[in-house]
Design a protein around this nucleic acid. Structure first.
Lengths: 122, 122
DNA sequence: ATGTCAATTCAAGGCTTCTTGAATAGTTGA
DNA sequence: TCAACTATTCAAGAAGCCTTGAATTGACAT
């Protein structure tokens, strides 16, 4: 992921409503959710939702597909992951403390990172 | 890290100049760098630099300390890591594909994540 | 064809962010 | 004290973002 794409993705993520959208859509996987259902779930007016969905899609964080009258939106997991990886790798130069703080959580899937980064000076 | 702090940190990161600041300051560690030297290195006018440093500090991403006439700024590695962790954990629900994409890089320190998350369907 | 439904686009307004030059505060050394 | 230096604050203007209601597009069923 290049710099301008990462910046666009970060800008898109830096908004409460759009973060809510990511939070709602990520568990839905590739199938995603129709705009109308999203609007109902989050209690957002249609034009406002359209605006934010479009912002996320333009940043590459969402994909959309039409099904009959509905438009289903789903997250692009790779884009989100690459964006975070960009901050870790390109901006923070894989700084051990940053990696450790990022991995410092309950999920055993990522615990390995904190463990390995014992080289951190604290 | 709570939601509003993570949002503030993401907003602060979503700017080219401030990303440049993080990129410059992270390798400097806890010692950091004086504002004047930062301005000279990046070629930024003093008031503009002050504006962005202040934005990052208010978001918790930077710390500052005065030494004689200089003000040294350094990154708060824990805050950056926690912010990324917030997106992974709270927003993306530790979605395997997101974790895999985040870990998909050259640094062996994080390769473990991608390896373990072999459960991702891809 | 027509009515209905899902979603987007448009236009206006209000608000926030960013940049710039000028002015200010605080510190050091002569 | 005074001059020099470092950094921040201030004010103004430009630019961009967000929200809202109204209008529009496109698809479906009768």
């Amino acid at each position: 992921m290049d710099r301008s794409k990462a910046l666009a993705a970060l800008s898109a993520l830096a908004h409460e409503t759009r973060l809510d959208l990511i939070r709602l859509l990520t568990p839905q996987g590739a199938e995603g959710m129709a705009a109308g259902q999203i609007a109902e779930t989050l209690g957002i007016a249609a034009p406002r939702l359209s605006f934010h969905l479009s912002a996320l899609e333009q940043a590459g964080l969402l994909r959309s597909r039409k099904v009959a009258r509905n438009v289903f939106y789903s997250v692009d997991a790779h884009c989100i992951g690459s964006t975070l990886s960009f901050v870790l790798n390109d901006c923070c130069c894989d700084h051990p403390e940053v990696l450790a703080a990022c991995a410092h959580r309950a999920d055993p899937l990522v615990q390995g990172v904190g463990a390995v980064s014992g080289t951190a000076k604290t």
